[in-house]
């Protein structure tokens, strides 16, 4: 019987004394919310029900026809994380990042560089180049990448503030198809590993958090759900549950056989 497995009060643990630190900024939420592919009018409810403190945005040519601007729909105090989507190489990503900073909403940037429009896979080599340039310019650089330990080490050396490996192709909702390789990053890289892209269900988010991921980024899972704010709430709980399980340490798995949870003495029979 284990008597020493009560280490922390769970209510005191994950939320208050376990901040997520990215580039020196502390967050209590470990759920990074996307803002794409759904109504601007749902953003406030999504942020609230997700408990999110960071929301991603994209930069595009401005439109003179639409009068609504997404910034008017994001609650105050939420950190903006512009991405460099649309960039096909490091140079284009750097350009988009600088424009995003000029928009006047902070120094965070999620680098996203794609050459392939069918699978939307990130170009790791160009991502390293862009990370190095932008980190030197003072950005808090959060590179989206295909999970590869060597690349992750290069990103650390290039000045990344976190590493954002994909779970499966963007928008696929397929879950942790790269699980083994994300686990390697979690075990070997001394930066927050934020699982991005492909997480489709709260159970998958929970699993990634149990593995030791620092946070989860999700967009399509919510945008394509039946009830977006309700799914945001479900993700929040799953991410918190996964984090608490990770902090607790999961129980062991038996290779074979069984282990009774009940006493093996005092049965109601004479033998």
């Amino acid at each position: 019987m284990q008597e020493n497995n009560i280490r922390n009060n769970p209510n005191d643990n994950t939320l208050n004394n376990d901040p997520l630190t990215i580039g020196g900024h502390k967050f209590s939420s470990r759920f990074i919310l996307g803002s794409g592919k759904y109504s601007l009018h749902l953003i406030e409810a999504a942020v609230r029900d997700a408990g999110a403190e960071i929301i991603t945005l994209a930069v595009r040519r401005a439109n003179t026809k639409e009068q609504e601007n997404i910034l008017d729909f994001i609650p105050e105090g939420v950190t903006l994380l512009p991405n460099t989507s649309g960039a096909r190489n490091a140079q284009e990503a750097v350009r988009i990042a600088r424009l995003a900073r000029e928009l006047g909403c902070g120094d965070f940037v999620k680098i996203e560089i794609m050459r392939d429009m069918k699978y939307l896979l990130p170009d790791n080599a160009e991502t390293i180049k862009a990370t190095e340039i932008l980190a030197k310019e003072g950005f808090v650089v959060m590179p989206y990448m295909y999970p590869d330990l060597n690349v992750a080490r290069d990103l650390v050396n290039a000045g990344a503030a976190s590493i954002m490996p994909l779970a499966s192709p963007i928008g696929s909702n397929k879950g942790l198809t790269t699980k083994e390789f994300i686990q390697i990053l979690i075990d070997e890289i001394d930066l927050p590993i934020i699982v991005d892209a492909g997480i489709g269900a709260p159970s998958q988010a929970c699993e990634a958090m149990e593995m030791g991921a620092a946070a989860i980024m999700a967009n399509t899972a919510l945008a394509t759900a039946g009830d977006l704010p309700l799914m945001a709430s479900a993700f929040r709980k799953a991410i918190e549950a996964g984090r608490q399980a990770y902090l607790s340490g999961l129980g062991r798995v038996l290779v074979r056989g069984a282990a009774a949870s009940d006493p093996l003495t005092g049965f109601l029979r004479d033998e």
């Binding site: 794409g36 592919k37 994209a58 040519r61 424009l99």
Partner: peptide
Amino acid sequence: IVPKALYESTMLNDGDTLEVVSFVGGG
């Protein structure tokens, strides 16, 4: 990039190319 403070003093010349961008929803 043209900083906002310079909008008033930056003259547009024939052949110039402007990109005007803003934030939109994204992941």
